[in-house]
Amino acid sequence: MQSYQRIEIVVGLFVLIGLACAGWMAARLGQVGGLGASGYELKAVFDDIGGVRVGSDVMMAGVVIGRVDDVRLDEDSKAIALLRIDDGVRISEDAFASVRTKGIIGDRYIRITQGVEDSYLADGDEIEETESALNIEDLVSKYIFSGKE
């Protein structure tokens, strides 16, 4: 019977290790809500959001400062992105948001360029200044036509 108790303890340990691994992944990788719903939310409207989707990065000066919570279309057929920004990151009211690409064919992300004003955006505010995604085809055609003229 002694040995059975030892087996029980070992099995308990095994289950604990397994659950700890599963829990670590859920907490660290799975974006389990509730607990981790920290940060504050900003809104930004783009003419063309170029394929940024939920979960895409929000970066400032090349540092990830948050992620895209939601992307949807508004009544004027413009793209609204809700950005969840980490606490402690302050974004000035005249900051500038643009859609960028990592590398040539890499992922789309939203880059925020810090402004100069001393007042900062709070939860629920909107970033007024935005720049849409660069469209390579547009660029190419623009270049071709400008060359002809």
């Binding site: 859920a26 990788l29 799975g30 979960g55 990830v64």
Partner: peptide, 10 residues
């Protein structure tokens, strides 16, 4: 890694 993995994958 944390950005690309969703609960769905897990």
């Amino acid at each position: 890694m944390t950005a690309k993995i969703s609960n769905h994958d897990l």
